[in-house]
Amino acid sequence: MSTTIVQNKEYKNKQKTKDNFISAIIGFFAFVWIFPILWTLWTSLRPYNDIISYGVFSWPRHLNLDNYFQAFRVMGLTKYFLNTLYVMVPSVILILFLGSLIAFVVSRYSFRFNLTLLLFFTAGNMLPTIATYIPVFWLYIKIGDLFGNRSLLYNNYFGIVLIHVAFQVGFATFVLSSYMKTVPKEISESAILDGCSVFRHYWNVMLPLLRPPLAALGVLMSCWIYNDFFWALILMSEDSKRPVTSALRQLQGQYITDFNLLAAGASIVAAPTIILFLVLRKQFVSGLTLGATKG
């Protein structure tokens, strides 16, 4: 008996040393991982002239936030941030709203096409974006012409919102419907017995119960839409109307020589999602994992 305990202790000690070793190795890689981000921050705090005259690894002679003020002033980031909000806020609200509608119907009412609908929405989220590019571009112009206003969808925030919604609503549907399966059916049955209309059943009974996945999805979707630069690059013809990530892409070409200024710009644009992630990590994780691993 006592020998097994000793052995066990020995084993545990050995495992402990091993774990410390593993932790050290992972720690090293974690440093490698975060290094490019730290390097960008470091670059953003130094004036360009310092690097030119003293080299990349020179001891910093001036460290300040000048590049940040400069970035806001010269690049006009405030305007682009506003553009992002115009796209992001309506998109996220619409995605959550429409996704919850489908998820609600599919999980609470039994129609013949429930599963087909769910499969179709989930698959839609996985289609390669590029395959839709030419027709979407054309559709936007044609629909605009149909209503006598070419920039009804093209070169309009509304158009960017619509395409985000069309692409992401499938993911929201999938996450919300798998969450709704865990909500007891009895709640719905009693609501129906009490003579609740379909709308009240959705709005007053189900929607409040969906708060946790809606919050998680809201965080995740905000991050995704904030980060997307591709659609705005294609469907917005005016530079000044582009959201901040697309604008950054343009500015990269413009300020390629002053990369300390660009570093400050990139840091400013990265800040919202990083802060969002650090503060709401739980929501992030649950949003992703509800979507990816649970049926």
């Binding site: 992972i26 720690g27 974690a30 991982w33 975060i34 490019p36 981000i37 390097w39 960008t40 670059t43 991050c223 904030y226 980060n227 997307d228 630069f229 990530t245 697309s246 950054l248 892409r249 990269q252 990369f259 660009l262 570093a263 990139a266 644009v269 990265a270 999602t273 990083i274 969002l276 992630f277 650090l278 990590r281 992030f284």
Partner: peptide, 23 residues
């Protein structure tokens, strides 16, 4: 470690391109 390894995932590719250019 978890936070660090996940951090690149929340960055826009527009930013990732710039960051790696700096490298």
């Amino acid at each position: 470690y978890e936070t660090i390894f996940y951090m690149p995932v929340v960055l826009s590719l527009a930013i990732i391109g710039i960051i790696w250019n700096f490298m």
